[in-house]
Design a protein around this nucleic acid. Structure first.
Length: 201
DNA sequence: TAGGCCATCTGGTCCT
DNA sequence: AGGACCAGATGGCCTA
């Protein structure tokens, strides 16, 4: 595994301020088929991974709680040890994101949607899943002879990111702030969703 | 070429 | 203390 290759890297760090050059990131990722980027990270005292000024939100996060504004330094840990732990954290984070993506993939498989040449994006997947759940809820309520708690809003679909997968409106007036135009795919997805429900009833 | 989407790195914070 | 979680930053790929 490439992560192991990286974790067992050479003794090239020098003193307090180390630098690692992730050559592996220049190659294609074996899992995703992507990644062509060269990454050069400096993990030193003055280094800033962002390479630019922090946003207000990030600054706020950074000052949250009791953490001091200056970067904390773990005592008694060598630069090499810090570097190693960072690489291990990176690997865990990568694994975590992969499992998250697996969950997205499983979600895509169970949501009825129009087959597209490209796969559903994450935001589309989540929005469709939400709509599906709401539609199912409506069906259940209908079968029970209860009032449907949600109503569809025709021609008013979207998400904050620009793509849209249709939206529903709570009867009680609760309404997310989404205003992007609907695409044909998303309209089709919503009707497909209803067709799927009717088939199952 | 701009914008959307994504993977990855990173450091701060939370949780066990 | 260490791992999980989170969000910002960055850069690559793809499409309109």
């Amino acid at each position: 595994m490439r992560s192991l290759d990286r974790l067992s890297g050479s003794d090239q760090d020098c003193g307090d301020r180390e630098m690692y050059i992730d050559l592996d990131d220049a190659s294609v990722d074996s899992l995703t088929g992507k990644r062509t980027r060269h990454h050069v990270a400096e993990v030193g005292e003055e280094s800033d991974s962002s390479g630019s000024e922090r946003s207000p939100k990030q600054a706020k996060r950074k000052n949250r709680g009791s953490a001091p504004t200056t970067r904390r330094r773990k005592s008694g840990i060598s630069a090499r040890e810090r570097n190693l732990r960072r690489l291990e954290s990176n690997e865990r984070e990568r694994m975590r994101m992969h499992s998250l993506n697996d969950a997205f993939e499983q979600l895509r498989e169970v949501i009825p949607h129009v087959k597209m040449e490209r796969k559903l994006s994450k935001i589309e997947t989540l929005t469709l899943a939400k709509n599906y759940i709401i539609a199912l809820t409506n069906v259940i309520c209908e079968m029970r002879g209860e009032e449907q708690p949600y109503t569809f809003v025709d021609g008013e679909c979207g998400s904050s990111s620009g793509d849209s997968t249709g939206q529903l409106e709570l009867s009680g007036g609760e309404q997310p702030d989404e205003s992007s135009p609907a695409s044909i795919h998303e309209t089709n997805n919503n009707s497909l969703l209803h067709e799927d429900l009717e088939r199952r009833i």
